[in-house]
């Protein structure tokens, strides 16, 4: 549509005052029936809003709200998938989940992924974004390449890395052997001490591109005048980046960290393909735990309780982050 609107519209819609002003050739005659009968209009408006909003709300109610309510219901029954929900057990499932060593370590693994992702991706992301923000040849291509892992499915990335990490015959083991180190006998992913860290590295590889991309966008928002002023004052490139770019990137970093956190809490696909939560539950997360309980063992009550706990943890972290970290941004309103 390249339809230029040159005439400013002075009146708000609904007020039938400016009808006479508009004299362009129009499809239908003047706005006669419109604007009369305010009460009828109000009902009409309500109906229109309803028509527009209902399909989306209905889908969300059916496929988001209903399952979540059901998860809460499951969590207070002992149910194996047969018959009705009759065996009410109160909070026993919660006690069982919270008392389960596997689940508790799963929560710990989730936290390692939450914190590890931020600690690895934040400095790397900022460094690479600073690098790409400079004027250099092939910059556009670089930006495209750095984002490629993010676009791939986690499953596909995981399968490729599974091949790279194959014990003995894989690329990684060949390279480690070449530089004189002995790779672990069971493979990196087969050794409980290493598995979680390898998963974390693969996740970093997969998601670093998003961090770089968002940081770059944040850097574009920094006013050129600040750089010119810094240059006039004789600041070096490093000083400029450290004193101007990085501090002004604060809001972007905090929002990115929030997204990263929410993603890490529900981490599933990558782990399911790389290790299935093993070896010996060394890489189990809350999500792999509840899928395990729900699909393999048909402990729907346990899975329900684990779901609710996962949600409470995610929600509490989101809320705490909102209160303690993100609130600064809404106050300052820097970007």
């Amino acid at each position: 549509m390249t339809h230029d609107v040159t005439e400013p519209a002075p009146a708000a819609p609904g007020h039938a005052t400016s009808g006479a002003r508009r004299t362009e050739p129009v499809r239908r005659a003047s706005g006669g029936p419109r604007g009369t009968g305010h009460r009828g209009d109000a009902w009409r408006k309500r109906l229109e809003i309803l028509i527009f909003v209902t399909p989306a709300l209905a889908l969300i109610a059916l496929f988001v709200a209903w399952p979540i309510v059901t998860a809460v219901r499951f969590s207070v029954y002992d149910w194996k998938g047969f018959g009705d929900l009759t065996d009410f057990v109160g909070l026993e499932n919660y006690a069982e989940v919270l008392g389960d060593e596997v689940f508790r370590s799963a929560v710990g693994h989730n936290m390692v992924i939450v914190v590890g992702s931020i600690l690895l991706q934040l400095p790397l992301g900022v460094a690479i974004a600073l690098l790409l923000n400079r004027k250099m040849k092939g910059q556009g291509l670089l930006r495209t390449i750095i984002f490629v892992p993010y676009v791939l499915a986690e499953v596909i990335a995981a399968v490729v890395w599974l091949q790279l990490l194959q014990p003995q015959y894989g690329f990684i083991d060949a390279v480690t052997a070449q530089i004189g180190l002995t790779p672990p006998e069971q493979g990196w992913l087969g050794t409980p001490e290493y598995a979680l860290w390898i998963v974390l590295l693969v996740l970093t590889w997969k998601y670093l591109g998003l961090a770089v991309l968002l940081f770059l966008a944040g850097m574009q928002g920094v006013s050129e005048e600040l750089y010119e002023a810094a240059q006039l004052d004789g600041a070096s490139w490093w000083q400029t980046q450290w004193r101007i770019t990085v501090p002004l990137l604060g809001p972007t970093m905090r929002t990115w960290a929030f997204l990263s956190m929410i993603g890490s809490i529900q981490c599933f696909d990558m782990i399911w393909v790389l290790t299935q939560g093993g070896p010996a539950d060394a890489t189990a997360t809350m999500a792999t735990y509840l899928i395990d309980e729900g699909t393999k063992r048909h402990n729907y009550g346990i899975a329900g309780a684990a779901s609710v706990i996962l949600f409470v943890i995610a929600f509490a972290m989101a809320l705490a982050y909102q209160v303690f970290v993100l609130r600064r941004d809404t106050k300052e309103d820097t970007v």
């Binding site: 969300i60 988001v64 059901t70 529900q266 509840l290 899928i291 729900g294 996962l310 989101a318």
Partner: peptide, 21 residues
Amino acid sequence: MVFVLGLLFPAAVAIIPLFII
């Protein structure tokens, strides 16, 4: 806000009941 709140529910939370439903 209903839609914003919808962002807060991880799909993993609903997945087992969703499968049953």
